[in-house]
Design a protein around this nucleic acid. Structure first.
Length: 641
RNA sequence: GCCGGCGUAGCUCAGCUGGCAGAGCAGCGCAUUCGUAAUGCGCAGGUCAACGGUUCGACCCCGUUCGCCGGCUCCA
């Protein structure tokens, strides 16, 4: 048979040669690293004999599919270890995920994380034994009989679904452990030397909260101990950067306990960060043609009925009685902006009208989902609503996308864009006419295309009221977070009868876009803290400069310097406590203060000052003006767009 | 909300088989006036998350509630 390699060279092999043998023929190194093969587009086990002509690709851990195969192969090893140690354990599913894999079990009398040692030991034993994985294809009935015999009720449920797809059933076994699996697998258990069990968690069977909760064990596996170690130290690094830890160390905010779960109390230092972000945001918005507005935190229930929130969002809202009326805390800002738009007739000459507000909203979130600043019950949406005509859509969307990216680029976040479209099979789920949707969906796509931005279209991901553009932002550790969102709305203009008078003198339905660029200020600050590892850029640092007189006799000079800096809008303070300079420097460093200005005998007499920059150390003595210039540059606020 | 874990000083954590509550850091006081990441000595700091139960006796055992953590479902 004739085998074609990825570089399009070709070679003859005897029919029945396996992928592993071919890999060995290319190089022993490749044979060592090979995990699975792709043959004529199909993923196969390395030991699968090949009979036809075709193109082959030997996949290693560097290939996404190779990685996955190693991971779910390892999940089988973990499952067999758990089943051996906890007889009676029923298997759920054990897929590969980003960075690792998990397996869901129904484990009787599970002892929790303390079982990890035993499970790891048993897995290591299997790895050492290097047990081959054996693939077997069978009929649906055979498979049901096999798993029914073992009492694997969850597998039977999975098989039931496979029956209808008509897919062929395959199982993989190693030793006396058998699991339903599409494969392919790596050849044997010896391949997964570098694994680590990470955590346990509860997880609903099939992800449905009405179902039984299973025990999930998260783990990971790599091709080398170096890569495993790197991954584990990345997890450590993420832990060190945890915004909850840094937030309390840096005195930014406090949350939970007597203040109520999910409610954020900004401390003075955190308030500075917030206000800097807010002020910059406001200036940028005014410059971008937005009009700032302000709306109350509560509104009558009737307003929420008109907007539809009462019907669709009630479970997440807080209600209160005032006089004879019922009110609700606002879970969103849109109805407020609608009232402002609608308080009088609007002319086409006023469009596009862009209203913006840093609006605090309150949403009931289940207690278990609360997480630091990332998921709270009261938060500030940097909300904006654009009212425009159909002709203005493309340009408005482009302006918003550009504006959103401006805010991300300030902090060097990476990004990727998603365009969420309607599910064409179920058009009845959506507000508005399908033809209108098509027009707008095309307009959104056109807006992105014209800008040369890459994006991924996701049909079926749109919310019921309109298509949207979501921008995921990528932080310094390569993690993606929900970022700016730009949502079209067919629902509200209709519900509130939002119109404008055109140049034809007639009423027209206005087009409406919701957009939030930070999403929530709270969450965004959480992201910033982790992204910068707490080392906020100068303009956001709560304390920008600490002035350190070495002894009491430089206090006068320190005070002069302080007033110069304060007059230049720099946040600084003098630390003249009777501690050693070393101690006070250490405290400023751990407090992540960007600049330290040190004045001793040497500087005091000659109009000099010694500059130290957080994280990069002593810069030596220099002229006062020079140091001030460096500090001012380091604390400069970002340019407006 | 659900599964699992945790809750001891402002913070990080010890505390044996149920028998008077411990340390470091931070804080305060005194001394020290110092040259680029921790000066020394002293003092103070606690309803052991809360409530209930078992016990002669509970930080410890049991129950309930609250809060937090890892996840699931959900989500900005």
């Amino acid at each position: 048979m004739r085998i074609i390699f990825p570089d399009s060279s070709a070679k003859e092999y005897e029919a029945g040669t396996t992928g592993l043998e071919i890999a060995g023929d290319i190089s022993p190194g490749l044979a060592r690293n090979a995990l699975i093969v792709r043959f004529n587009g199909e993923l196969l086990d390395l030991k699968e004999p090949l009979y036809d002509d075709g193109s082959i690709e030997i996949l290693t851990f560097r290939d996404e599919e190779g990685k996955k195969a190693l991971r779910y192969s390892c999940s089988h090893v973990m499952a067999s270890a758990v089943q051996k140690l906890y007889p009676g354990t029923k298997l759920g599913i054990g897929p590969s995920i980003d960075d690792g894999f998990y397996y869901d079990f129904d484990i009787p009398d599970f002892t929790g994380i303390s079982a990890f040692e035993e499970i790891t030991a048993e897995m290591k034993r299997q790895v050492k034994e290097d047990i081959p994985f054996i693939r077997k294809e069978m009929s649906f009935e055979e498979a049901v009989a096999l798993f029914d015999g073992k009492g694997e009720k969850y597998k039977i449920e999975l098989l039931d679904e496979l029956r209808d797809t008509g897919e062929s059933i395959s199982v993989y076994s190693h030793g006396d452990f058998v699991d339903l699996c599409r494969g392919p697998h790596v050849p044997s258990t010896g391949y997964m030397k570098h694994f680590d069990l990470l955590s346990t968690a509860g997880a609903y069977w099939r992800g449905d909260e009405k179902n039984m909760m299973l025990t999930r064990i998260y783990a990971t596996v790599f091709d080398s101990s170096k890569n495993l170690k790197e991954h584990l130290s990345m997890l450590e690094e993420a832990k060190k950067r945890d915004h909850r830890k840094l937030g309390s160390e840096l005195g930014l905010f406090t949350i939970g306990n007597e203040g109520g779960p999910g409610l954020v109390y900004w401390l003075p230092a955190g308030t500075i960060v917030r206000e800097e972000l807010e002020n910059h945001w406001k200036k940028a918005h005014v410059k971008a043609g937005y009009q700032l507005v302000s709306t109350p935190h509560i509104a009558p229930v009737d307003l929420w009925k008109t907007s539809g929130h009462y019907d669709y969002y009630r479970d997440n809202m807080y209600f209160l009685k005032i006089d004879k009326g019922e009110y609700a805390l606002k879970p969103m800002n849109c109805p407020g902006h609608i009232i402002i738009y609608n308080h009088r007739k609007r002319s086409y000459r006023e469009l596009p009208m862009r209203l913006a507000e840093l609006g605090m909203v309150y949403r009931y979130e289940k207690s278990g989902v609360l997480h630091g600043l990332m998921r709270v019950r009261g938060f500030t949406v940097d909300d904006g609503h654009i009212f425009c005509t159909e002709d203005q859509i493309v340009e408005e969307i482009q302006q918003v996308v550009r504006f959103a990216l401006y805010f991300l680029k300030i902090h060097n976040f990476g990004y990727s864009i998603e365009l969420s479209l309607m599910d064409r099979e179920h058009t009845d789920k959506y507000a508005g006419e399908p033809e209108e949707w098509s027009k707008v969906e095309l307009a959104l796509a056109k807006a992105l295309d014209e800008m040369g931005e890459e994006y991924r279209s996701v049909p079926g991901e749109a919310v019921f009221y309109g298509p949207k553009i979501d921008i995921k932002m990528k932080d310094a550790l390569g993690r993606f977070w929900q970022g700016p969102t730009i949502q079209f709305d067919f629902n509200i203009p209709q519900r509130f009868n939002l119109t404008y008078i055109g140049n034809d003198g007639k009423e027209h339905r206005v087009f409406m876009v919701h957009r939030a660029l930070y999403g929530s200020l709270e969450r965004f600050i959480g992201n910033l803290i982790e992204h910068y590892s707490g080392n906020l850029p100068g303009w956001l640092a709560p304390h920008q400069v600490v002035i350190l007189p070495i002894t009491g006799s430089q206090l006068g000079k320190a005070e002069e310097l302080e007033s110069i800096l304060t007059d230049s809008d720099i946040r600084c303070r003098i630390d003249d406590r009777s501690e050693t300079v070393g101690y006070r420097i250490r405290e400023a460093e751990t407090g992540k203060v960007p600049f330290m200005l040190i004045i001793g005998e040497r500087e005091a007499g000659s109009g000099m000052v010694s500059l130290r920059i957080h994280g990069s150390g002593d810069k030596g003595s220099m002229k006062l003006d020079e140091a001030i210039e460096i500090v001012m540059a380091g604390c400069r606020r970002p340019e407006l767009p």
